[in-house]
């Protein structure tokens, strides 16, 4: 196995170049993606369900709760977002539980591009990243120059991370190279003038991809195109992150590292609302990828209401009394 390099590092491009033959043409890419082994749907679901039955209690639970809080991309993606709401969310991200300063801060605040400046200012030097959705989120239905301008705007406003959506229409109609080139172009648009770059998360919207095979293909496709993170969903459609889909993506990330030595992160998003769910995902990461991925650099939760449940569980563990929604913020 080649030595591991992070997807956002300089060496990653060289590693990906070693796979250039499979992305040389539409035909080659199609042959490669369709040559990936098919997904055993029943086995996948059974495995995901089994991993969901672990019982995590007491100190392990306390650790898992704090870890999950530190992995949250605290998200507000509403048409009604105001600078005030974004500032309030940022304040919550820095001190999730105002009554208990030992609660860890979240990983990032995820907003629309026009709110990046506000979030950046509100977070200051807290160390929390600002993630911005881009490329005509959530539908991704816009011309490429518009998507790239969207991305550059967000990066210029100070975004540390860009969450792009893929063109599902192109992917489902089999125009794989088009999707590949688009991700590459957005990745280039993430570069800053000083040579650094915003990290790129690629959203698949797995609820619209129909089959597990498609999820495996799009995972490989995006990682080959240079994604730093792969993310399940926008949170805007009926079906969001599910344990089987996330497990499949974790396996793709594992296999990709085994092949190329490039480490990519995973972010399930949407529909994860309870501590129990979050811990199931952490078990899945630990069992599939191992401890290396159990940090906010390599695994994230895209969520808004999850944080409140984690905080209530945290309060229960520290006081012994069940907490209630009166003791966390209304977002």
């Amino acid at each position: 196995m080649p030595t591991t390099v992070p997807a956002y590092g300089k060496e990653a491009a060289g590693r990906l170049a070693s796979m250039a033959d499979v992305t040389a043409s539409d035909g080659a890419l199609r042959r490669f993606l369709h040559g990936l082994p098919g997904v055993d749907a029943v086995g996948l679901q059974a495995r995901a369900a089994t991993l969901g039955t672990r019982s995590i209690k007491t100190t392990a639970k306390a650790y898992a709760i704090d870890l999950a809080i530190s992995m949250i991309d605290l998200t507000t993606l509403e048409g009604a977002d105001t600078p005030g709401k974004v500032r309030a969310l940022c304040a919550k991200g820095v001190h999730p539980d105002p009554t208990d300063r030992t609660a860890p801060k979240v990983a990032a605040i995820c907003v629309y591009p026009d709110m990046v400046g506000v979030a950046k200012e509100a977070l200051g030097d807290s160390g929390i990243h600002v993630a911005s959705v881009a490329t005509a989120f959530p539908a991704g239905r816009a011309a490429l120059p518009v998507k790239l301008a969207d991305t550059r705007d967000a990066v210029a406003a100070g975004a540390d991370e860009i969450d792009m959506v893929i063109d599902r229409g192109a992917f489902l109609s089999g125009r794989y190279l088009e999707v590949f080139e688009e991700i590459k172009a957005v990745k280039e648009a993430c570069a800053r003038p000083d040579g650094s770059a915003a990290h790129l998360k690629v959203i698949f919207e797995t609820g619209e991809l129909q089959t597990y095979d498609n999820v495996r293909r799009v995972s490989w496709l995006s990682m080959l195109a240079g994604a730093d993170f792969i993310k399940t969903s926008t949170g805007k459609v009926a079906v969001n992150a599910t344990p089987p889909v996330t497990l499949l993506m974790l396996e793709a990330v594992r296999d990709f590292r085994a092949t190329t030595g490039v480490q990519v992160g995973v972010k399930p998003a949407g529909g994860i609302r309870t501590t129990k769910d979050a811990i199931k995902y952490l078990v899945m990461v630990n069992e599939t990828l191992g401890e290396e991925w159990l940090t906010a650099d390599w695994f994230r939760f895209g969520a808004s209401s999850l944080l409140n449940d984690l905080l209530m569980q945290r309060q229960k563990l520290s006081t012994g009394r069940y907490s209630g929604p009166d003791y966390v913020t209304v977002d």
Binding site: R321, Y322, G324
Partner: peptide, 9 residues
């Protein structure tokens, strides 16, 4: 006991 201590009761 847990009901009496529950913060949301």
């Amino acid at each position: 006991a847990p009901l009496a201590a529950h913060q949301d009761v």
